[in-house]
Simulated assay, not measured.
Amino acid sequence: MAKRISNLVIAKKFILVKHFCGFPKRTDLCILEETLPQIKEGEFLTEAVYLSVDPYMRAYQHRWKLGSVFNGLQVAKVTESKSQKFPIGKYLVGDYGWRTHKILDEKTFGKGNTIEWTVPSFGNLPISLAAGILGLTGNTAYFGFLEICKPKTKDVVVVSGAAGAVGSHVGQIAKIKGCKVIGITGDNTKGKYLIDELRFDHFINYKEPNLKENLIKYAPKVDCYFDNVGGEISSIVLSRMNHFGRVSVCGAISSYNSNFSDLPKATTIQGFIAIKQLTIEGFLVNKYINRWHEGISTNLKWITDGKLKYKETVTEGFENTFQAFTDMLEGKNIGKAIVKV
C-alpha cells in the first residue's frame, strides 16, 4: 500500500547523484521521497509492481542527468484514475524509472517512439513476464535475432551472454527455427541449464582456457552470431564465421564498467569482416515499436505451446533494487532479473 499524508501519495525514487566510475557503487544513487499531487481529469496514478534491471542501464547512465530518476522499465498497476481509458486495475509497462509511483496522462500515453504499452492478457502466466520475456527482453531477442540474423534451418548459431535474459531466449528461438545452437557463458551450472532445460546443443565456459579450440570443436563455421558481450570473445567468434555470416550486436557488456577513454583492447576484426563478407548490424529494440505486440503474441504462443521456457531471478523490495542491479552485472542471475516492489 502507498504511504499517504492527507490523502496524498508519498512516492519513493532512486536518484542518480554520481555517474558510475568503474563498477557501480551504492553511493552513486540515493533514495528520496516526493509527495504527489491529486490526479486531474484524464490522469491516473500508477504503482510499480515489478522493476526491471538490465545491462543497458550501466552502459547508458553517463547520458542521464545527475539529479534525475534512475532510468528503467517497470510493470505498473493503475491504483487511482480519472480516465475511462485507464481504469483501476489495468497493468501498464513504461520507462518510468526506479520509482514507486507516477501520475500519467491519457493524452500522452504511448505517444512517440517510447516504450509504453498496456499489458494484454497472459492467461495463467504471471504479470511479471511483461518485464521480461513478454516485454522488452522478449522483443529484443525476437526482433534482434530474426530480423538481423535471418536464421535458416541447420544454421550454426552462437550466442554470447547465453544464460542471461536475452541470450537464453535467442538460443531457444534458434532451436525453434531448426538451428544448431552453442551458448557462451561464464559458469558451468548455467551451461548445464542451457543444455538440460533450454535444449542448446553445446555450451562453452569462456572463463576456462581454449575458448577458440572449443568453438572450433562445436562449430567449425558459424552462420549467425548474436552478440551480447563484445570484446575478445566476439573477436574469436567473428574469426570463425562462415562466408556471408550474419551478426546481430545487442550489447557489449564486457566493457560496460570500463572508462570510455580507456576501453579494453581486442583482436582486430575488420579483416574477418571483409574476407568473410559478413553482415553486422547493431540495433535498439525501440526501432520495432510499431510491431511491439507481434513479438509479444508470438513469444506468448511459443510459451503456451511448450516451445519456449523462461526463468526469473526475483529480488524482493524496492530498497533492494540497486543490489539486484549489481548482482545482474556480476552475472548472478539466470534468465531475467527483476525486482518485486
Rank of each mutant, 00 (worst) to 15 (best):
residue 142 Y to E: 05
residue 142 Y to V: 04
residue 143 F to G: 03
residue 143 F to Y: 15
residue 143 F to R: 08
residue 144 G to H: 09
residue 144 G to R: 09
residue 145 F to H: 05
residue 145 F to Y: 14
residue 147 E to F: 10
residue 147 E to P: 03
residue 147 E to G: 07
residue 148 I to V: 07
residue 148 I to W: 02
residue 148 I to H: 08
residue 149 C to E: 05
residue 149 C to R: 07
residue 150 K to H: 11
residue 150 K to F: 01
residue 151 P to Y: 11
residue 151 P to S: 06
residue 152 K to D: 10
residue 152 K to M: 13
residue 152 K to I: 03
residue 153 T to D: 11
residue 154 K to N: 15
residue 154 K to C: 11
residue 154 K to M: 10
residue 154 K to F: 12
residue 155 D to Q: 14
residue 156 V to F: 09
residue 157 V to C: 12
residue 157 V to F: 15
residue 157 V to S: 01
residue 157 V to W: 09
residue 157 V to Y: 07
residue 159 V to L: 10
residue 160 S to P: 11
residue 161 G to F: 04
residue 161 G to T: 01
residue 163 A to D: 06
residue 163 A to Q: 05
residue 163 A to L: 04
residue 163 A to K: 04
residue 165 A to D: 02
residue 165 A to W: 08
residue 165 A to M: 00
residue 165 A to F: 02
residue 166 V to A: 02
residue 166 V to P: 09
residue 166 V to R: 02
residue 167 G to R: 09
residue 167 G to M: 05
residue 167 G to W: 06
residue 168 S to L: 01
residue 168 S to Y: 02
residue 169 H to I: 01
residue 169 H to E: 00
residue 169 H to M: 12
residue 169 H to K: 00
residue 170 V to H: 01
residue 170 V to S: 04
residue 171 G to S: 01
residue 171 G to Y: 03
residue 171 G to W: 08
residue 172 Q to I: 03
residue 172 Q to S: 03
residue 172 Q to T: 03
residue 173 I to N: 01
residue 173 I to K: 04
residue 174 A to F: 09
residue 174 A to I: 07
residue 175 K to A: 03
residue 175 K to T: 01
residue 175 K to C: 04
residue 176 I to G: 00
residue 176 I to S: 00
residue 176 I to L: 10
residue 176 I to F: 13
residue 177 K to F: 14
residue 177 K to R: 14
residue 178 G to W: 14
residue 179 C to N: 12
residue 179 C to A: 13
residue 179 C to I: 09
residue 179 C to D: 12
residue 179 C to Q: 13
residue 180 K to F: 13
residue 180 K to E: 07
residue 180 K to D: 00
residue 180 K to R: 14
residue 180 K to L: 05
residue 181 V to A: 05
residue 181 V to D: 02
residue 181 V to F: 10
residue 181 V to I: 01
residue 182 I to V: 15
residue 183 G to S: 07
residue 183 G to N: 10
residue 185 T to Y: 10
residue 186 G to F: 13
residue 186 G to Q: 11
residue 187 D to I: 05
residue 187 D to S: 15
residue 188 N to R: 15
residue 188 N to I: 03
residue 188 N to H: 14
residue 189 T to P: 00
residue 189 T to V: 13
residue 189 T to W: 10
residue 189 T to Y: 11
residue 190 K to A: 07
residue 190 K to T: 02
residue 191 G to Y: 12
residue 191 G to I: 07
residue 191 G to D: 13
residue 191 G to L: 09
residue 191 G to V: 07
residue 192 K to S: 13
residue 192 K to M: 11
residue 193 Y to V: 10
residue 193 Y to E: 08
residue 194 L to S: 04
residue 194 L to E: 07
residue 194 L to M: 14
residue 195 I to C: 14
residue 195 I to Q: 15
residue 196 D to E: 15
residue 196 D to Y: 04
residue 196 D to F: 04
residue 196 D to W: 04
residue 196 D to G: 09
residue 196 D to Q: 15
residue 197 E to T: 14
